[in-house]
Design a binder for these strands. Sequence first.
RNA 1: GGAGGAAUAUAACU
Length: 312
Amino acid sequence: VVSSTEMLYAYGGARKLEAAKKLFDSMPEQDLVSATAMLTAYATNGHLEGAEMIFLNSMPFHDIVSSTAILSLYAQTSNVVKAWDLYQSMPVYNLATDTSMLAAYTMNGHLDEAKTMFFDMPQRDLVSSTALLAAFAEAGNAKQAETIFKEMPERDLVASTAMLTAYAQAGQLDLAEDIFNSLPDKNLVVSSAMLSAYTQHRQLEHAKKIFDEMPEKNLVCRNAMLNAYAQNGHLEEAAKMFHSMPEHDTFSYTAMLSVCSQAGNIDHAKNLFDQMPRHNVHSWGAMLAIYTQTGHSAHAFDAFYTMKALEP
RNA sequence: GGAGGAAUAUAACU
């Protein structure tokens, strides 16, 4: 059971959900630990139904680790109410549990609840502090983010990235650059954050330089570069970027819809929209912009109401 | 042997 669980964990981390499922189903005995590893594999892939099924049907009982695993998934998938209900029902808490509940707030724009949660927690550490810092960052509150950052006894790359984003959101590009330049080791995430900071401040050349110097690239940083072109009016470069990407997600498509909107190309937009794997408020919002701007008011109303219905 | 934090997209509002 132990070695199979290690394998399960590895499959989960490698996003090999099918392989994980197969292995889990073939295990002669499943225990709470292996079931939690399977739950986490679903969670890593954003698969809420699968994770809930494991949680409800494949666990002899729930401990703090298994409950925290699904709590974290509720946070990621914007299920704040489910997260709170589960959290309430738990007999004991620890730092990871509290931080997951905190993340349910910070990841979904509930800044006031996040603050209350954070200061009511019996313990705080680098991880929980970074969660709140990121919430301040998103709210454009660099001052409060800075307070948290400076009070941290130790900082890591994750915390520094959150602080960089806080400065960028607040329009303090120079301070964001200071953080970036002070880092001895950079990764894909912090470089993407800096890239987007340059995009936001209309410094396309700097954004491109960061992108070109990145030793590894993934979907997120390619989307970020696509948006650097799109948001700075370089429509042809944006299209070229889009077509050169090995894969696309809803972020890539929505960025391209915005390119079509700027180019006034409604037919291409419709094509892209139909190709999208999923539609959400962002894709409908982009279509709304296109319809509004081209005077297709009936379609615009459709898009508007569809969007409203999708809103959480 | 299993759980928590950072980067990318949308009309309007702020």
